[in-house]
Design a protein around this nucleic acid. Structure first.
Length: 423
RNA sequence: GGUGAGGUGGAUGAGUGGCUGAAAUCAACAGUUUGCUAAACUGUCGUACGGGUAACUCUGUACCGCGGGUUCGAAUCCCGCCCUCACCGCCA
């Protein structure tokens, strides 16, 4: 969430930046200012009275020690007079803090000034294109046909076991998943990321820490018996490794990578968007996460984009990088680059990665801090990106590399897959 | 799931009602000493929110797993929950 002191000092600017995100409820900003003023006022009163009570209590102790029982009794009665005020004020304080927090959490992160204007995905700016779009014959098959032809995924049985959108990978389809995950993790660890294998369910505090709650509550699977959420991305558990911690400045940047399955309810999706692997409820993904010094986060963002670009490149897939416009960005993000690969048989771009700088938005919620050179605690910046999400990569690998002889896999995967062709 | 023990500052760990925001040790940081390293010595060394200030400083409140309660006063007593460890049960 945004930091209250910053909001109060930059009311007009905050509203202006929120407009870039096409966030309409700017009245919330004024509410926050008012609530925080109120909070301070109540706290001051409360502290003042409490200080008196504390002093009196100390005195009572001394009186009793001296055996002055009557004086002690008198003092007790004086303290009792404060009791009512204390109770009232502490209730008011708790209520105001609660309201303030609830309001604060409704505000999205401010977009960086590098964010292009615009409202819809059409307004996103292509910053780079790479790779070559293959020329496929007219009878080229979409990936869902290829999946059937080579018996890689059994969607029907997955639906039988669980429900639609839960693919059952099979044979070489399953092995390809394993190969990709392994390759991606190796690629990331070679670049200095520490590998983690996190829990796939998180508690409420973790989901709140990275901003999934309360904003995206309906998009996560929830286990009511234990109050756990199935993770929509390993960003959640991995970022929360550092929740409520203060790291040394010299430990920054913290670079982490993790594989996990991702669970998303994707309520309301339908049509050709969800065909085959385009959109599923459970998929595999390898994620990269960094915690950085605030001065370095944009530099690191570019570095992460470049890292993911290299990875996509090694797969020989045509891709493009988009800088998301204000209206298409995520709630918690300050600047986001999307990676899309070109699905030649469907003739459309498919998102395979989203690399974002969250600045201090997540770290403020999760209290991820570092001690700076002056000994002051500062919020770190958090960044993360997919590196990479599997299903759409697989869709493109299959479609773009189809030949009469079979699917020709990119060379980097051969050692992981134990071969270069699916036929 | 059952039984028992326990959760205190970066770590170990003392503290069973006021003198404790918290001993001691270790780690860390700064300095002195030293040819360098090491050792020794000295000092610093929790977080959050307020008040006051030009600022360093000063000052108030809260926090000893979390939430309630008792009390003039709670790390300390009571209740609920969570977590950790050990043993048992079950089990990949």
């Amino acid at each position: 969430m945004l930091q209250v002191p910053y909001i109060k000092q930059h009311v007009a600017l905050v509203k202006e930046r929120l407009a870039v995100k096409h966030f309409g409820e700017t009245a919330l900003v004024d509410e926050i200012v008012a609530l925080d003023d109120q909070r301070k006022k109540i706290q001051f009163e409360f502290d003042t009275i409490q200080a008196k009570v504390n002093a009196a209590s100390k005195q009572i102790g001394q009186l009793i020690a001296k055996g002055l029982k009557e004086e002690a009794e008198q003092a007790k009665q004086q303290v009792a007079a404060f009791k009512q005020d204390i109770n009232t004020l502490s209730e008011q304080l708790a209520e105001t803090e609660k309201q303030l927090n609830e309001t604060l959490v409704k505000l999205p992160n401010l977009p960086s000034d590098k964010v292009p204007p615009g409202k819809t995905p059409e307004d996103n700016v292509v910053v780079r294109e790479g790779g070559v779009k293959p020329q496929l014959p007219a009878d080229a098959a979409p990936h869902w046909d290829l999946i059937t032809r080579y018996d890689l995924i059994d969607f029907e049985t997955g639906a039988k076991i669980t429900g639609s959108g839960f693919p059952l990978y099979k044979g070489r389809g399953a092995k390809l998943q394993r190969a990709l995950v392994q390759y991606f993790l190796d690629f990331n660890t070679a670049a200095g990321y520490t590998e983690y294998l996190p829990p796939f369910m998180v508690n409420e505090a973790s989901a709140y820490g990275t901003g999934q709650l309360p904003d995206k509550e309906g998009q996560m699977y929830f286990m009511p018996a234990d109050n756990f959420y199935l993770i929509p991305t390993s960003e959640v558990p991995v970022t929360n490794i550092y929740r409520d911690t203060i790291v040394k400045e010299t430990d920054l940047p913290v670079k982490m990578t993790a594989y996990s399955p991702c669970f998303r309810r994707e309520a309301g999706s339908f049509g050709k968007d969800v065909r085959g692997l385009n959109r599923v409820h459970q998929f595999e993904k390898v994620e990269i996460v960094q915690l950085t010094h605030p001065d370095k986060s944009y530099e690191v963002l570019e570095e992460m984009v470049s890292h993911v670009g290299k990875l996509v490149n090694t797969l020989n897939l045509p891709y493009r990088i988009l800088k998301l416009c204000g209206g298409d960005m995520g709630f918690a993000s300050a600047l986001t680059y999307d990676f899309e690969v070109f699905s030649a048989a469907q003739q459309r771009w498919l998102e395979v990665s989203s690399v974002s700088n969250f600045e201090a938005y997540q770290s403020n919620r999760a209290r991820i801090r570092f001690k700076d050179a002056n000994g002051k605690n500062q919020l770190a910046h958090t960044l993360n990106g997919s590196s990479l999400a599997l299903p759409r990569i697989v869709a493109c690998l299959l479609e773009n590399n189809q030949t009469k002889e079979g699917i020709l896999l990119p060379e980097v995967l051969h050692p992981y897959f134990g071969g270069g062709i699916i036929n």
